[in-house]
Amino acid sequence: MYNKFSKQSHKFKGFTLIELMVTIAIVAILAAIALPSYQNYIKRSNIKAAQTDLVTLSLVFENYYQRNLSYPNQDYTTTSALSASTAFPQWSASKIDIFEFSSTKVDSGKGYELKATAKDSSNLKGCILKLSNTNLRTATTSCDGKTTW
């Protein structure tokens, strides 16, 4: 005879609170390891982009020299001044939100020094990259700990 009051075993499906807490702890540990590495990767990629922009600007300066037999005889103090110049219409910076680009004439226009300075609002504060017409490439230690590139 069927007893409707007999004990039936109930199997609950799902996770216990302990299993859920262990999973959250493991995810938190993995995130704590991965986040600094990712931020370091972003910094290095921004520095590489600024270096590429400096090399490209250097090629534009050398092209100017080939056309005029002299380097530009004026200083460009901002990225917008370099971009707005009629002498360099083919150059535009890729990281204008992170770096400010400028150029300085050297030796009365017989050379130049290009500079990319990290803006204070970026996570690279204090990073300054320089490139001269003699291909001297320097950086501050705030730029990934290296002084040359």
Results as ranks from 00 to 15, higher is better:
E19P: 03
I18S: 10
F101P: 01
Y76F: 15
L17W: 04
L69R: 15
N46P: 07
N133T: 05
Y71A: 00
I128E: 11
A25V: 02
A34C: 06
T77N: 15
N40E: 10
C143G: 04
K105N: 08
A28W: 02
R44M: 08
S70E: 13
N40D: 11
L54A: 00
S102G: 09
A31Y: 07
P72R: 10
L82K: 07
S83H: 13
V22L: 11
T148S: 15
T77A: 15
K11N: 14
S83E: 14
S37K: 11
R137F: 09
A50D: 01
W149Y: 15
N123E: 13
G14I: 06
K48H: 14
S142M: 06
A34T: 07
L82G: 07
P36L: 00
N123M: 09
K115N: 03
S85Q: 05
F88A: 08
K146S: 04
Y65V: 00
L59G: 11
A32L: 04
S83G: 08
I18A: 09
K7Y: 13
I24K: 03
A87K: 13
S92I: 06
K130H: 05
H10N: 15
C127H: 07
G126Y: 08
D107N: 13
S80L: 10
L54H: 07
I18L: 13
P72K: 05
G111L: 02
Y41D: 05
